[in-house]
Simulated scan of single mutants.
Amino acid sequence: MTISRRASLAMLATLAAASLIACGKKDEPAAAAPAAAPTAAATAAAPLRVAFVYVGPVGDAGWTFAHDTGRRAVEARFGDKVKTSFVENVPESAADAERVIRQLATDGNKLIFGTTFGYMEAMLKVAKDFPDVKFEHATGFKTADNLAQYDVRTYEGAYLAGVAAGKLSKSGKLGVVASVPIPEVIRNIDSFTMGARSVNAKATTAVVWVNKWFDPGKEREAATTLIGQGVDVLMQNTDSAAVVQTAQEKGVYAFGWDSDMTSFGPKAHLAASIINWSVYYNARVQAALDGTWKTGTTWLGLKEGGIDLGAYNADLPADVKSLLDERKKGIVDGSAPIWKGPIKDNTGKEVLAKDAVADDAFLHGVKFYVEGVDGKVPG
């Protein structure tokens, strides 16, 4: 009993002391701890996080390689003001694209570039859920308050390649290894053919569709098929270097697409339609950094430095180079537009009247083959 009572008394004393301490804290709040001096890292602005979504592997040639070259140009220009990242081999299926793009937004990226047509609907959907993130979609046609659309006039490079092909083809039979039958690709096939027929009215173009952007095996098979049909100059609208490699093996000519592909076929490679995405990426990152970014549609061409036919083969004749320079000048200054009527489709129907010049709305809606292209556009 004595021990229990002592314990009770001790407990009461402890509770009383605690009560007094509590009252003291309430009446006389403790002084706040001095704030830590800000570090250099804390005072510096956090880098803008910029992400890129690629449909194929980065590799060392082609469409995705060209985009990643643009990404690296952003890093070189802006240094520690930005932090870039990319995800490659993202399918165009809505579920896959949305999952990746949504995760990038969730992870804190504030500027996201989706680099293929098939990402359009997924980007629209994710953009609605992340209004504070800026989205950029390549080659599409839909925009939103925080989703812009951008593209390069690849048909200009295709046309110039056609001019060279028309001059150098001995058979007059040209071929295109084509990816997916959307207006962008059909427009390139048509422009290539118009370029060739501007110097050889009898030139024709055969097309083999592989229905994928990147599939070296199918691209090789398509190129081989075209060569078997007598084609001696190849163009492609696919992403690997397989067409140039096949041309080298079979002893015909080819053009690099989206980037210089000389190393894959030095003898076959006549020139390359080269995209310079850094023109756009640097401008848009700068706009995001300085708060002037706005949605809209941008289509860069030769005039803006977004595309060019370059990486000429050393054996390309001087007169062909001179002709290409002349055609480039006409495209840039507007004196010789590529899509100027009269233009007919390959059934003989007039699609552009004499002296009429196609506007961008017309060009974005091209779903027909022009005169000189064999076959029918896939349904």
Rank of each mutant, 00 (worst) to 15 (best):
M120W: 02
Y119S: 00
W63R: 01
V82N: 06
L48F: 06
A94I: 11
A22Q: 11
A35I: 10
F86V: 09
V87I: 14
A30R: 14
A51Q: 06
K81Q: 15
D80M: 02
K25W: 12
A46T: 11
G56S: 15
F78I: 05
R71S: 05
L111E: 05
T39I: 04
F65V: 03
T115Q: 07
A46I: 01
F86C: 04
R77F: 07
V58T: 11
M123Y: 09
I112R: 03
L20R: 03
A44I: 04
A37N: 09
P57W: 04
A51K: 08
G56K: 01
G24I: 12
T39C: 06
K125T: 14
I112P: 04
V53S: 04
V55G: 06
A66S: 14
A42T: 14
V82Y: 08
I101L: 00
E75W: 03
A95L: 10
R71N: 10
A30I: 12
L124K: 12
D96N: 11
L104Y: 06
V126F: 05
T84L: 02
A127P: 08
R71F: 05
W63L: 02
T106Y: 08
A45W: 04
D96C: 03
I112W: 07
D80L: 02
A44K: 15
E98V: 01
V90E: 04
S85C: 08
E92P: 00
V58W: 03
C23R: 10
E92T: 10
G114M: 10
G24C: 13
T115A: 02
K110Q: 13
S93M: 03
R77T: 15
A95P: 01
D107N: 08
F65Y: 15
P34N: 07
D96G: 01
A36L: 14
T39A: 09
N109S: 03
T64P: 00
A22L: 14
V90T: 11
P34C: 10
I112S: 06
F117G: 01
P47D: 04
P57I: 10
V58C: 02
V74Q: 04
A61H: 12
G114S: 15
Q103P: 00
A45I: 06
F78Q: 03
Q103H: 11
G56I: 00
A30W: 09
A33N: 10
A42W: 05
F113L: 02
F117D: 01
A73C: 06
N109K: 00
A97S: 12
F113R: 00
G70T: 08
R49Q: 13
A51R: 06
V82S: 04
K125G: 12
T69P: 03
A97E: 01
K110M: 10
P57Y: 09
E88F: 02
R102G: 13
A42V: 11
E92I: 03
I21K: 06
G62I: 05
F65R: 06
T116L: 09
N89R: 13
T115Y: 00
F113W: 02
C23H: 09
A44T: 12
